[in-house]
Amino acid sequence: MMKILDIQALASVQDLGRSGWRELGIGQAGAMDPLALKAGNLLVRNEENAAAVEVILGGMTVQFDYDTPFCITGAFYEAYLDGEPIYSYWRYTAKAGQILTLVRAKIGMYGYLCICGGFQVPHELGSASTDNRTGLGGIEGRYLRQGDAVPTLTRHNTLSTIGVAPIAWRNTIYAVPSSEYDAFTAESQRLWWQRTWILQGSSDRMGYRFKGESLQLKAPLEMLSHAIQFGTVQVPPNGQPIILMADAQTTGGYPKIATVVSADLGRLAQVRFGGEIKFYLADMQTVEKLHKENDIYLNHIRRIAYEAD
């Protein structure tokens, strides 16, 4: 078990999410930064989809009841193991009774605490991911609380201490035009690709709200609700784009100007409130290149994680 001694952040158990249930109105949930989750799991020799604890910005203090290798990926956290500083993207082994303290995210938004063997919460509809709206997954389908004991599985009592290169940060995110792209004025299309957009503090796991120059349609457009997904860029009547994130609903009725390339969803998720982003138009060659770069990065971690011992 891993006991939550103190928590001042929204934290939940997440894997890569549940798929195949959207027709019933059940969303994906899952990690906001899938690449960081995969990287952490590989570093502690788990399957890429193993359940981890996702922590948003703030602090959390936990205690391990047995020796276990662990790492933190995603956001760069100020963190300590029994008072000694530790670093993101490094693998450590905590001894039974040791206390891990995550103080705050210094860079990025979403941190992932991965342990060797993963967190052993029930799988519901094929996933351990917490969906706070439906009450599925994780610990009773909710965010973690002080006093929670999160079940874990022992696989290796100790692994060597190693570090890997973190995921590269950038403030440019690649996207492709979506189904209503041509319904927007030429000026709005230009603004979408050429202007800087600022992430608003009202953003959350459901959607990232951006502020910038208003995007306008050529003519009023009435639409029935239609399927949407993680990465869809909707434009409501105020002209300020909303990018749907991991906890997004399954349908929506606003016109869609673009969709973020899936290989860049994690980088988008790590943008801090008030952060500035530019969106670049991606062709098929660019999309393939981004996915290949992510695969090369994960394969590098996989090799290092097993060669170290």
Rank of each mutant, 00 (worst) to 15 (best):
V164W: 06
A165Y: 13
I167V: 13
I167S: 05
A168K: 15
A168G: 11
R170N: 13
R170I: 00
N171L: 03
T172M: 11
T172D: 13
T172E: 15
I173F: 08
Y174I: 11
A175E: 03
A175M: 07
A175W: 02
V176C: 12
V176R: 13
P177Q: 08
P177K: 07
P177Y: 08
S178V: 08
S178I: 09
S178K: 13
S179W: 12
E180A: 07
E180G: 07
E180W: 09
E180Y: 08
E180P: 06
D182S: 14
F184V: 00
F184T: 04
T185D: 09
A186H: 04
E187T: 06
E187V: 09
E187W: 01
E187N: 05
S188E: 03
Q189R: 13
R190P: 07
R190K: 14
R190T: 14
R190N: 14
W192S: 00
W192A: 01
W193P: 03
Q194E: 15
R195W: 11
R195G: 10
R195I: 12
T196W: 13
W197H: 01
I198N: 07
Q200G: 11
S202F: 09
S202D: 14
S203T: 04
S203Y: 02
S203K: 00
D204R: 00
R205K: 07
R205N: 08
R205Y: 04
M206K: 01
M206N: 05
G207I: 05
R209A: 11
R209C: 11
R209L: 12
R209T: 10
F210I: 05
K211M: 09
K211N: 12
K211S: 13
G212I: 11
G212K: 04
E213C: 05
E213Q: 08
S214H: 11
S214Q: 12
L215D: 06
L215V: 05
Q216I: 11
Q216S: 13
L217I: 00
L217H: 00
K218R: 09
K218Q: 14
A219T: 10
A219D: 10
P220S: 09
L221Q: 00
E222G: 12
E222M: 13
E222I: 12
M223F: 02
S225H: 01
H226K: 14
A227R: 07
A227W: 10
A227S: 14
A227K: 10
Q229I: 12
F230D: 03
F230W: 13
G231A: 05
T232C: 06
T232R: 06
V233Q: 09
V233D: 05
Q234T: 11
Q234R: 00
V235Y: 03
V235P: 04
V235R: 01
P236T: 01
P236S: 01
P236H: 02
P236I: 04
